[in-house]
Amino acid sequence: MKDVSFGQYYPVKSFVHNMDPRLKLLFLIAYIVAIFLARNFYGLAACLVVLLLAIAFSRVPILKVLRAIRGVLFLVLFTAVINAFFRTGETVYWQYGILCVSKEGIVFSAFLVCRLILLVTCSSMLTYTTTPVSLTDGIESLLKPLTWIKIPVHILADVMSIALRMIPVLMEETERIRSAQKARGGDIEGGGLIKKIRAVVPILVPLILSAFRRADELGDAMDARCYMASKKRTKYKKLRFTWRDLIGFFVGAALITGVVLFNVYEAFLWLPV
């Protein structure tokens, strides 16, 4: 259970945890827009301030939040390397064929890395502070208008919540299969890229098989508990917009609007480059 922090709920009570999931989802979307509007490090710094505030109010330990980056570490490094080596600029430090290291390239790749890290951490904040059930309730509620064009939103929401629920189970299973293959002398670790990809097969095949078997059993268990997709269900946890959400809405909206405005008009401000 070492790498399952991404997409996992962190159970504490906090202002952010109690917030309406719809509000959190909308904030996340607005915040991501704000991140993409940022054109330089000042913009990202402004975004970071908002994120830090959110983390502080969520009572999720900052180390836990940072751990979410591990899941996309490869992507981060890939972005950094590609941009640092393939971008020309005015101040060139080193050049060989199409490879080129320039000051602008390094700055730009650092910028991209920071942006990526912000994106990942803010998304993981949503899953840390929102239970899968309330998250899917939120999505279901936001997508409600789609039922007008006959899209079965509630079934999609059920599918999603089960998928989220199965993440830790399948993670554990992967670990178990990996150990089992190792115990039988399977060469799982080390080797070049091709060898690594090959090594995935003996883990992936049993994993997929067992996922199907699990799906079958889960289906039976759901049937046995009177689940009928076509039937109307009641909801134990109804989403309610409370006065806390109202406060959250004003604070969050003000902050995000602030960042967006800052990022749009920052060019007119006097800031050292």
């Binding site: 709920y9 239970t131 899968p132 059930v133 059993e217 889960l218 009177c226 009928m228």
Partner: peptide, 22 residues
């Protein structure tokens, strides 16, 4: 591991009762 529908205890216990529309 193959019976729980939700991630949190109370949400899972509620599942059947929700299905019958209580």
């Amino acid at each position: 591991d193959n019976q729980a529908v939700a991630s949190i205890v109370e949400d899972d216990v509620a599942f059947g009762a929700e299905n019958v529309g209580l």
